[in-house]
């Protein structure tokens, strides 16, 4: 083996940096979607790698559903400050108040309502491109996604009519009102993300590590006890030693029982895992095509 060799993480890294720089080079007003979750933490490090010593040439954008884990929002705000980045937060609460997002009667989940909130933020700031941390290994509909994913002027994804993507030449051309979603981590797996976090010594929100949390058993998984969906009389609230594997809203994120207190522990746990990451997301279990339908409507 020559010394001119990159291991798999270095390959994924240089591919992602190339994509980030293509965005900076081809778009007028890009934004980077940053939630504070593990994937977008990697995105931020890749942005530093792509653009330092300059500032990251785009603001960070987060759609706050109002149902976020508080630990996540704290981390999000702190990390953005450390990097000297501009963080824009748009809330579903606000979007409902302004009539941009309309909850259906009895609808508690904010999952669907994120979509109009995001699209309104894109319009407000005239973003022509949003970089997101989605990965193709997460979900079957995402496995069909391009690095540069074209959205029409309604924000819609048309999976049957995607632009062919050849070599590393990305077609970022848009007409007014159209939009691009760009996914530099497309080729990364959950394991790659954690190995990268370990290699780069990146800080992650505390809820990824083992902690004691009040949970209710529902639908075969531990959900954090919360006031939004109070436990039914038949359900018991218990203190459980858990961690989250993927972070969604507090009402739909299943916690896994885990003693993992370090990144090394998490990597070992994933290596031995027998269910996928999204297996703990109630929003994806809705139907076989839950993700596809949300993406077509403008989800990232």
């Amino acid at each position: 083996m020559t010394s001119y060799h990159l291991d798999h993480l270095q390959h994924l890294e240089t591919e992602a940096i190339h994509i980030m720089r293509e965005v900076a080079g081809e778009f007028e007003r890009p934004a980077l979607l940053f939630s504070g979750g593990k994937d977008s933490i990697c995105l931020l490090r890749l942005a530093e790698k792509a653009f330092r010593p300059s500032d990251i040439p785009m603001p960070l954008l987060n759609v706050d559903t109002g149902h976020h884990f508080p630990e996540l929002n704290d981390f999000r705000d702190r990390r953005a400050k450390q990097l000297g980045a501009r963080l824009i937060v748009r809330t579903v609460e606000d979007a409902i108040a302004k009539g941009i997002a309309q909850p259906s009667p009895g609808e508690i989940s904010r999952n669907r309502l994120q979509i109009p909130t995001l699209l309104a933020a894109i319009e407000e700031f005239r973003f022509d491109c949003c970089i997101g941390g989605a990965r193709r290994d997460e979900e079957k509909a995402r496995a069909k996604e391009r690095f540069f994913s074209f959205r029409d002027s309604f924000g819609q994804w048309d999976p049957k009519n995607q632009r062919p993507e050849i070599w590393n030449i990305y077609n970022g051309r848009l007409n007014p009102g159209e939009n691009m979603r760009v996914f530099p981590l497309s080729n990364w797996t959950e394991m790659d993300v954690w190995q990268y976090i370990r290699r780069e010594r990146l800080e992650v929100p505390s809820i990824y590590f083992s902690h004691t949390r009040k949970c209710v058993r529902r639908g075969g998984q531990w959900l954090p006890a919360n006031h939004l969906v109070p436990p039914k009389p038949t359900e018991q609230v218990r203190d459980v030693v858990v961690r989250v594997r993927t972070i969604g809203d507090i009402i739909s994120t299943g916690c896994v029982e885990s003693p993992a207190t370090s990144i090394d522990d998490i990597i070992a746990e994933i290596a031995a895992a027998r269910v996928t990451e999204r297996g703990s997301r109630a929003d994806d279990k809705a139907s076989e095509a839950a993700m596809e339908d949300r993406k077509k409507a403008g989800y990232f």
């Binding site: 060799h5 990159l6 291991d7 798999h8 993480l9 390959h11 190995q195 090394d264 522990d265 990597i267 070992a268 746990e269 290596a271 031995a272």
Partner: peptide, 12 residues
């Protein structure tokens, strides 16, 4: 669960 050092990082 294997100790973390046994989790292989693929070479390419």
């Amino acid at each position: 669960m294997p100790p973390p050092t046994l989790v292989n990082v693929p070479v390419d």
